[in-house]
Computed example of a mutant assay.
Amino acid sequence: MIQDWFSRISDAFIKTDNSNLGKIFSLLDDEINQLKDTFQTIEEWHDINNAQGKTLDLLGEEIGQKRGKTDDEVYRSLIKSKIARDTSDGSFNKIIEVLAQTLNCSPSEFRLHSADEPAAIYMTDTPLSIIYEAGFTPYTFANIVQSTVSAGIEVQSIQLDGTFELSSVSDYENDPSGLNGLSSLTRPTQGGTLGSYIVPGKETAVPL
């Protein structure tokens, strides 16, 4: 860009990078490039997949989704979930589509069933690992499921499958499928994970 500027002025001026004019152009070039980077970031952050920090907060506020104490990645998933939930017709296919978008996984991970009681459903065979990978707790996931179904429909229960298995080797403490390395009460860092069985109606709702 500096060379283009040089070409537009009279040859009466010294047109080198070390000249006074060259130094001024260099400063202007730096400022213009910074502005270009800023405008490019603004353009990119219009996309929810790229937005961060306060920009992501503004996107969430537009659709009525609170951040709470979640980080950007989890909040981004909540915003996507809110957008999808607002357009859900309550059908099994749409519920599964919303959950897949929220957890960024395949719709095949979810199994919904009609309960024996009227206006009630239940879920089975959902891998607990995909919930942890999305940054959610099982209870937050249960709230999302309940908020996705049609008004008046009860989610009776949600079965979340872990990966824990009884070891078939003598060194069971180091078996990757066994229960070991529980450095967190909410998310094991090594070994298999226990499953979970949730009754949404008995859990405390979180703002979604």
Results as ranks from 00 to 15, higher is better:
74 V>Y: 05
50 N>W: 01
57 D>C: 09
43 E>S: 14
77 S>L: 13
57 D>Q: 10
71 D>W: 07
64 G>T: 10
78 L>I: 04
53 G>Q: 02
53 G>L: 01
50 N>C: 14
48 I>A: 13
76 R>V: 02
46 H>Q: 10
46 H>Y: 03
53 G>T: 03
70 T>K: 11
52 Q>G: 07
49 N>I: 03
76 R>A: 07
65 Q>S: 14
53 G>K: 10
64 G>V: 06
77 S>F: 09
75 Y>C: 03
72 D>A: 11
44 E>H: 08
45 W>M: 03
79 I>L: 09
47 D>P: 03
50 N>Y: 02
74 V>S: 07
81 S>I: 12
62 E>V: 15
50 N>E: 05
67 R>G: 03
68 G>I: 12
77 S>T: 11
67 R>H: 04
57 D>Y: 11
63 I>R: 09
77 S>N: 12
63 I>Q: 10
64 G>N: 08
70 T>I: 05
61 E>D: 07
42 I>L: 08
56 L>Q: 04
42 I>D: 02
72 D>S: 09
79 I>F: 11
64 G>W: 13
77 S>R: 15
52 Q>I: 04
78 L>P: 01
79 I>E: 01
55 T>N: 08
46 H>E: 00
70 T>R: 12
74 V>G: 07
73 E>D: 07
59 L>Q: 10
67 R>A: 08
50 N>T: 01
78 L>Y: 04
42 I>S: 07
46 H>K: 12
59 L>P: 00
65 Q>E: 13
76 R>L: 05
47 D>F: 09
67 R>M: 04
70 T>W: 00
47 D>H: 14
78 L>E: 00
69 K>F: 02
79 I>H: 11
51 A>F: 02
65 Q>T: 15
65 Q>V: 11
49 N>W: 02
44 E>T: 10
46 H>M: 06
63 I>T: 12
79 I>T: 09
72 D>F: 05
71 D>T: 11
68 G>S: 09
70 T>L: 10
66 K>V: 11
50 N>K: 15
64 G>C: 07
